[in-house]
């Protein structure tokens, strides 16, 4: 069983556990935020041509750009932000949802956010746009799901 696990890519729940583990060793909020910022810095930069209004996630104080494409039945996300903390949170979301099939993205909540002590950023009334970003990712997944269904029929 272990042998089998190590030879396939992590599923979304394993990714979730990995993220939680990663944050467990971090002590106070400073360390956690600094780690978030570092994750943002490591995020693959989004090409300038994608940083246009139509890719902006609405409802953000900081600007968040999100694009998606379908590769072999999986949704691949790319994103960026002009604010450091938001960019780190964006990086986590991309890591979590990118490469998953549409159904998984639609049904899976980013529960790790609460477990790593960042729940304040996922409050629906917070204007940093993380909620809007998750919503936008799910909309992309729904669109690709119906596209795949059309192709199949």
């Amino acid at each position: 069983m272990l042998y089998f696990l190590s030879y396939r890519t992590m599923d979304i729940h394993e990714k979730q556990e990995r993220i939680i583990k990663e944050f467990k060793v971090l002590g106070d909020w400073q360390e956690r935020y600094k780690h978030i910022i570092k994750l943002g810095q490591k995020l693959d930069p989004l090409e300038e041509k994608h940083k246009k209004d139509e890719n902006l996630v609405r409802g953000c104080q900081s600007q968040v750009w999100l694009i998606a494409e379908l590769q072999d039945g999986k949704v691949v996300f790319k994103a960026d932000s002009d604010a450091a903390i938001t960019k780190g949170l964006v990086a986590l979301m991309v890591r979590f949802y990118s490469g998953e099939d549409p159904d998984t993205i639609i049904v899976t909540k980013p529960e790790f956010i609460e477990r790593i002590g960042m729940q304040e950023h996922l409050s629906p009334t917070r204007s940093n746009g993380l909620v809007s970003m998750v919503k936008q990712m799910k909309i992309y997944a729904m669109v690709y799901k119906s596209k795949l269904q059309q192709q199949a029929s």
Binding site: W29, Y33, Q61, S62, D82, A83, A84, I85, T86, S127, N128
Partner: peptide
Amino acid sequence: QIHAHDVGTILDKQGVAVRTG
């Protein structure tokens, strides 16, 4: 070098309430 949103978030952590945006 620092986005207002980041400034506001770190100030809030220190108990300082300002507006950003």
